[in-house]
Design a protein around this nucleic acid. Sequence first.
DNA 1: CTTTTATTTGGTTAATTTGCCAAATATCCA
DNA 2: TGGATATTTGGCAAATTAACCAAATAAAAG
Lengths: 107, 107
Amino acid sequence: MDVQNKSGYIAKANVLKALAHPTRLYIVEQLAGKECCVCEFVKTIDADFSTISKHLSVLKNAGIVQDEKRGQNVFYSLKVPCVLRFMDCVDIVIKSRIEEQMQILNS
Amino acid sequence: MDVQNKSGYIAKANVLKALAHPTRLYIVEQLAGKECCVCEFVKTIDADFSTISKHLSVLKNAGIVQDEKRGQNVFYSLKVPCVLRFMDCVDIVIKSRIEEQMQILNS
DNA sequence: CTTTTATTTGGTTAATTTGCCAAATATCCA
DNA sequence: TGGATATTTGGCAAATTAACCAAATAAAAG
């Protein structure tokens, strides 16, 4: 890994790091195709609202979501919808792991 | 996020977490289409070989790569090649962030 | 203009991750 | 067998991340 590429890998890793949290994955999935108000996440996620706000800001800083204030509320939406495609591949990884476990059990 | 889905999100996040490190991203890219010996990573990555070995084991435990010992060497290969598709979308996120910076500068 | 509601920010502590060193393992070669 | 090479594992200290509480900010309603 030569020096000029190193910062590139750091930048890429930071994007993935922003997604690599159960609550943030949930948020991103909820944002598939629609925008959501912070207030909705506060209702459905079992965590302090300040914690939820910080998760949203991690996603925003990573460039994955964008926000817009309207009245008292802040609405978040996906800025780069291709992140939703990650989920399919992640599911394949998990399924492949489960199949492996099954094979071990049946042998 | 109801309770039955919670562990699903944790599992998915763990897969992404395994990818969310510059060194591990580099490793995964190197494994695109070919297998690599640990010894090659030891040559090209500027870190202790024990550190590299641990990164490989993180990827292995996540189910992303597999290993095979042949003689003195251990060869790693991608088990779930679809992870390579992540890179394209990550690049889009980063590009979109850069374009945004440009617009701010030009306004 | 004071109060209420929605959200963000600051600060602290606990948990997790990372990287190095040293030691253990395993294979190969003399 | 004994030594050299390749890789993994254990352990520890430093760095990063996460969660909560309390306080700050901002818009809306009374």
